[in-house]
């Protein structure tokens, strides 16, 4: 987050004025997600003395990290004007695959991780090939692959969770570096790497460009198909990371895991200001979006609001936030 403000693109020296202008710009851009985040944090702090405890904050961050990783990948997809509905199913498949290879086939942990990562990348690549070589909408393609992959997860596991209790594997999702839970660390590292990719590489500029206008990008000499292919492959790879972390943390690969996670990831992206039509959105926004959803989930539990009402509250908050964001954008124009 900080380097957004502190690293200068043009190499000109940073002045206080420049930095404060940037902070102001950022505040303007992220009004809704940041506002919602601060708003809910304040409410929760008043409501429950336990909310602001370090334990609970780390607990929220850890819960956010899986959805957060998916949302980071989803931001790339949404920036190209697409959507990937298969991430929830792929999360379950790669997670059960890693667990199964370790506990059923007794493969060493690093090998199992490499196989699961490759499987996730492969599925992403298949999505990418179909989407970039055809005119079928990404929504439809990934809806179909979502079913295929969920089916694979069920077939591979026989419908039952695969238990894996092995310290060298479980430490991936359960360990800590200092006070920070490992999943949070992976999430932050991924955020930094992906943010760099999106902002400072030609690949990142191409992602924005083809979301803005595929035709203009094509005329400008951007390989639209290859960029799309790479975005979906990257999503598969990141989803596999999340799947491995999740099954490591759960002591088991759950074939039913991740149902509806694709939509939570989309919600985090749009709360963070990404536009479903592509070309607009930032990873920092997605980070805030994921945090809003995490604080909201935690808050509704801590306030012990009935689980049926929680669904309604969550839906309404997302709707209200998006409406405010839309309103803000229109009034700025």
């Amino acid at each position: 987050m900080t380097y957004n403000f502190l690293i200068d693109d043009g190499g000109t020296p940073l002045t206080i004025k420049k930095i404060s202008r940037r902070i102001l710009n950022a505040a303007r851009y992220y009004t809704v997600p940041l506002g919602a985040l601060i708003f809910f944090c304040v409410i929760m702090t008043i409501a429950s003395p336990n909310f602001l405890k370090i334990d609970n904050l780390l607990n929220i961050l850890r819960q956010v990290s899986i959805n957060g990783m998916l949302a980071l990948a989803m931001t790339f997809v949404i920036l190209t004007g697409g959507i990937d509905l298969s991430v929830g199913a792929l999360l379950a498949f790669t997670g059960t695959l890693a667990a199964g290879i370790i506990s059923k086939n007794n493969f060493p942990v690093p090998l199992a991780i490499i196989i699961a990562l490759s499987a996730g990348t492969l599925v992403g690549a298949i999505n990418g090939i179909i989407i970039s070589t055809s005119k079928i909408a990404p929504f439809i393609v990934t809806l179909a692959t979502m079913n295929v992959i969920r089916g694979l997860a069920y077939i591979y596991t026989g419908g039952l969770p695969i238990r894996v209790v092995m310290p060298s594997f479980n430490v991936i999702g359960q360990g800590y570096i200092g006070p920070i839970p490992n999943p949070v660390l992976y999430f932050l590292i991924l955020y930094i790497i992906l943010d760099f990719m999106l902002k400072r590489t030609s690949f990142g500029r191409h992602v924005y460009s083809i979301g803005d206008s595929p035709d203009a990008s094509w005329f400008a000499g951007i390989n639209v198909n290859r960029t799309k292919f790479f975005v979906y492959t990257l999503t598969g790879f990141i989803t596999a990371i999340a799947g491995i972390v999740l099954s490591s943390r759960m002591y088991s690969g759950q074939p039913t895991a991740g149902q509806g996670y694709e939509l939570d990831a989309v919600a985090a992206c749009v709360l963070g200001g990404a536009s479903m039509s592509g070309g607009t959105g930032r990873l920092t926004g997605t980070l805030y979006g994921a945090l809003v959803i995490g604080v909201l989930n935690n808050g509704l539990n801590i306030l012990n609001i009935n689980s049926f009402w929680q669904l309604i509250a969550k839906g309404l908050v997302i709707l209200l936030a998006l409406y405010l964001d839309d309103w803000k954008k229109r009034s700025m124009e």
Binding site: Q63, M250, Q254, T256, A257, G258, N301
Partner: peptide, 12 residues
């Protein structure tokens, strides 16, 4: 019936 959600809720 969501095991992950059950764990999350208990952690909260």
């Amino acid at each position: 019936y969501d095991q992950i959600l059950q764990i999350t809720q208990i952690e909260d």
